[in-house]
Design a protein around this nucleic acid. Structure first.
Lengths: 278, 278
DNA sequence: ATCACTTACGGGTGACGTAAAAATC
DNA sequence: GATTTTTACGTCACCCGTAAGTGAT
């Protein structure tokens, strides 16, 4: 059989026009290319070049061969990419969520359950989540509404309650609960990766400003050292107890402040997801 | 890049199930296959096998890889075949004719004109000739009728007159000409590769028998030593003068006994054919 | 004991590099 | 003189084979 390196050199020659240029781009010496092209001709039993004393060009057969060579090289490159991608999908559990809260609960459980797999997660919009789920980019996704679609299985997973987080001197600190209307106009320190919560609070408190922080720890740090309110939820209070230091958490009483999360996945991943729900 | 020999060994393993069997069929030693598979895994950065102590099977990724490998190997085999076929077509002038007569004139001229090319020819039915001409299997064909088709160029090339060939004692030997009707009922020695002439004589002399000879020289030999008539034409009389030894050639006067031949070719071969017609 | 795979080691092919020559611009 | 191809020669990688070891049937 004709080895790939011969086809590579043939393609390089076609692309660059001279043996020297081809060799240059292949990072090998020029005589190697000369020899390889002869070997290719010999193996095919066919002449591929018109040779003058110090000039060499592809003949008709050579052009045809170069085309085929390109196709084969592309196919091999594709094979390599596909196999790597397949293997990666096989060894990673990629999860998408509409908000970070459920991931805080899920990811530790996932890494414990699938110790040999890499767990990775994204926070995306519902639209992007569904598209990628369909593409098998995610093993499952988490939405804040149930999904009625034959293609997917949908199971309620958990809820999350939004709180306002203030220091002791803040007027709201003494209240048992608060409404978005009451808090509207306050300026908040906010983590930037809050998913759908961002649109909720912006809609419900249109007069407020939200100072977004890329870094989750910075949110707690800045909030602890300022009078600005921030957000928390029943989940973050449990997972990140440090965030409660010196802060009073008051729940929003509006229905929009309570989210119910649903695990959504294809049937083929039922087994994996069942272990999560167990 | 991944070399072909690795893909070959992977495919062989998939096909035969064990490294030893694969090695056997590849005509190499078994440890070579073992090493090659490891190398393949290393180059892909992916595990392709489930290995137990003395057992090795393809995993999911391996199966996928083997499928891709097969496709690439097939593609390469195809490339090789196509290139060889292309080159061969480039270096051969293949010609098809409805009858052997025109080839007797043409082939010597062709071999003289294209000394560096291999000349080969077939005698086929009109239908087969047109199909293969369209397929570029022939540079040109010769039919016994003009063809009015935009795709092809058609030029009158030569004529051929059919004769009956008898010995001196045969009644027809004294005639200046003969009709098929008069000769009907006679039994003929006939060369088997006469193309369309066979259908002509069978139609025109339905009561005759035709004893076909595969070997052209046998026709002359047998005819010379028998009282049976045979066929000749103005062309064979010129090209094979030995066939006249002791034989009288009497022309058939019927119009069907005279053929006019036409050279038919695609425009792309105009140059080549022009040199024949010059 | 046989079979299947791996590991270790040695050998030879062949792919590559360097150097130099030939030819063209 | 610069560029391009070919030829010659030396080197090293690597692919293969043999032999030996391990574990399973």
């Amino acid at each position: 059989m004709i080895e790939i390196y011969l086809l590579e050199q043939l393609c390089a020659f076609k692309e660059y026009g001279t043996l020297s240029e081809a060799a240059e781009h292949l990072n090998i010496a020029q005589p190697s290319v000369s020899r390889a092209m002869k070997k290719l001709e010999e193996q095919l039993g066919v002449s591929l070049f018109e040779r003058q004393k110090n000039k060499i060009v592809l003949n008709q057969t050579g052009l045809l061969a170069a085309e085929y060579a390109r196709r084969i090289l592309d196919e091999e490159k594709n094979m390599e990419a596909q196999i790597k991608a397949f293997d990666r999908r096989l060894h990673t559990v990629n999860v998408g969520s509409i908000a970070p809260g459920p991931l805080m609960v899920l990811l530790p459980r996932l890494t414990a359950l699938f110790a040999d797999q890499v767990v990775s997660s994204d926070i995306e919009t519902e639209e992007a989540l569904l598209q990628k789920l369909n593409h098998n980019d995610y093993r499952f996704i988490i939405l804040n509404r149930p999904l009625d679609d034959e293609k997917y299985i949908c199971k309620e997973y958990m809820t999350e309650q939004l709180y306002i987080s203030v220091n002791h001197f803040h007027p709201i600190a003494t209240q048992k609960s608060v409404t978005f209307a009451e808090a509207d106009g306050q300026n908040f320190i906010m983590y930037s990766q809050v998913g759908f919560w961002e649109s909720i609070v912006k809609e419900q408190m249109p007069s407020s400003n939200f100072y977004k922080q890329e870094n989750l720890e910075a949110v707690g740090e800045i909030a602890a050292n300022s009078n600005l309110p921030s957000f928390s939820t029943d989940i973050t209070q449990k997972i990140l107890p440090s965030r409660r230091n010196g802060r009073i958490n008051v729940p929003f009483s509006d229905p929009a402040a309570k989210a119910t999360y649903y695990l959504i996945y294809k049937k083929e991943n039922a087994q994996l997801c069942a272990r999560l729900l167990a």
